[in-house]
Structures are given as C-alpha cells and as structure tokens.
Amino acid sequence: MTTASKTKATATKSAPAQSEADQPKMALRITAKPSGGFRRCGVHHPAEQVDHPEGRFSAAQIRTLKSEANLVVHEL
C-alpha cells in the first residue's frame, strides 16, 4: 500500500467533524429586559416570556442570545 493509499484509508475511517449546523440545538425561553422589547437574531423579543422550540435558533445564534445583556435566556 502506498503512502497516499494509507492516508486515504485513514481519512475514510475517521468520523467526520461536526459542523456548527449539526450541533444540538435547544428550546429556549427568552424575555427582553427593556419594557418595549428588544430585537436580536432577526426576532423581536418582547418583555414577556416567549418559548421558542428546539431548532428555532442555530448554535451561533444561541451563543449570541445568551451573551446579550438585554435578554434573559433560559434553556428548556
């Protein structure tokens, strides 16, 4: 077996890396701190609690929402 063949064989045996889109997503309960609500990730979040289903936001959006000081985000 040549070096190229060994490398190819090894590459096919290893598990593919998970992309961000493949990572688990979670249901969230989001409440905006400002009384008029707050817009983030393309969604207006009111001052009242809103439950969002699993898969509504990508892993990157969840990180953004959790780091936003104007939102209270709870995992469900």
Rank of each mutant, 00 (worst) to 15 (best):
M1L: 10
T3F: 07
K6I: 14
T7Y: 09
T7R: 14
K8R: 03
A9G: 04
A11C: 00
A11R: 05
K13I: 12
K13L: 08
S14T: 14
A15S: 13
P16Q: 11
P16A: 10
P16S: 14
A17F: 05
A17I: 08
A17M: 13
A17Q: 01
A17C: 06
A21R: 05
A21Q: 15
A21W: 03
Q23C: 05
Q23L: 15
P24H: 05
K25A: 13
M26Y: 14
A27M: 09
A27S: 00
L28R: 06
R29W: 12
I30P: 04
I30H: 04
I30C: 11
A32C: 03
K33P: 00
P34F: 01
S35F: 01
G36A: 00
G37C: 10
G37W: 08
G37H: 03
R40T: 01
R40I: 07
C41Y: 08
C41I: 10
C41W: 03
H44W: 08
A47T: 10
A47L: 12
V50N: 01
H52R: 12
E54V: 15
E54A: 15
E54N: 12
G55Q: 00
R56W: 04
A59M: 06
A59G: 10
A60Q: 06
Q61P: 10
Q61D: 11
Q61H: 09
Q61Y: 01
I62A: 09
T64F: 08
L65E: 05
S67T: 04
E68L: 01
E68V: 04
E68G: 06
L71A: 03
L71C: 03
V72N: 11
V72T: 00
V73N: 11
H74Y: 13
H74V: 04
E75C: 04
